[in-house]
Amino acid sequence: MLEIMKQRAKELLESGRVVRVLGWQRGDFPNLREPVFFTTAKQLDNLEYDRFCAANLSKYLIGTDVPTLAFLKPCDTYSLNQLVKERQINRQMTYIIGIGCEGSAKLTDMEENGTLERCLVCTKTVHAAFDELIGEDAAPREKNDRFAGVGEIEAMEIAARYTFWQDHLARCIRCNACRNICPVCHCKKCVFDNTKYDTAQRANASAFEEQMFHIIRAYHVAGRCTDCGECNRACPQAIPLHLLNRKLISDINHMFGEYQAGTDTETPGPLTNFDIEMDKEVGL
C-alpha cells in the first residue's frame, strides 16, 4: 500500500496537479513518525505509513493556499470536513487521498503499548471525504461503546465525580498540547493567550483554573469536535480529555438527535443552527 501511495503522490506532484504532499516520515526513533510536506519526488521516498502515523494531518491544511495532496485516515477526513465547513480549509486547494487504517499504536515512552483508545472505539471507519482512495476503509471495530466511560462518570456521586476530575486535572501542566493539536482549536488568538483581557492564563494557579481551561475548551469545541482523539493522544499527563468532549457529544445526541461533526461540509452544526421549532421540541 505504501508503494502505491508513493507512486500516486509522485504522479500527482510531477503532473503539477499538486505542488506539495502532506504525509508522514520516519523520525529519529524507531516508533516516531512526523508530519511533513514533501515537495519533490525524491523526498517522497521517505514517505511512511503504518500504525505509528497517528497524527491527524487535517490541521496542517488550515490556510493552505497552494494545491496540496494530503493522505488522510478515515477519521482524519471528518476533521477536514469540519474545517472546510468552518472556512479554515479551502477544499479546492486540497487533493485528498483516503488511506485505509487498522488503528494507530499507543506509545508509552516511545514503546508501543497497545492501540490508541480512540481506535478501539472507532466509529468513523468510512472516509467522509476523498478524491481517491488507496486501501480499504477501516474495518469496523469490535463494538466497544465510546460512551461507556461517560456513563461511568455520570453514574458517580457528585463528590466522586468531582474527585475524579480534580485528580486528573491537577496533573495538568498547561502545556497546551491538547489545544494546539486539536483540529478545531483554530482561533487566531486563544482567549487564554490574550493578555489584553483578564482571561489570559498561562498556568493553573488554583483548582478552579485547572478546571476552567479544560471545561471552556470542551465547550468551545462542542458540536464541532469530531472525537478524533488527538487531545487524548497528545496529553503528556494522560488526562482523559476525550471524556469531557464525549460527554458533550452524548448530550448533543440526546438533545438534538445523533450528530457526528465533520460528516459533511454543509449541514449546520446543532449549536450553531438556530431553529426555534426545534428548540420548542427539546423544551428550551
Partner: peptide, 14 residues
C-alpha cells in the same frame, strides 16, 4: 528524552 515522547508531532532535539 521526555520531549521526544511528549511531542505530538514527533519532533525532538535528537
Amino acid at each position: 528524552g521526555r520531549c521526544v515522547a511528549a511531542c505530538p508531532a514527533g519532533l525532538n532535539i535528537v
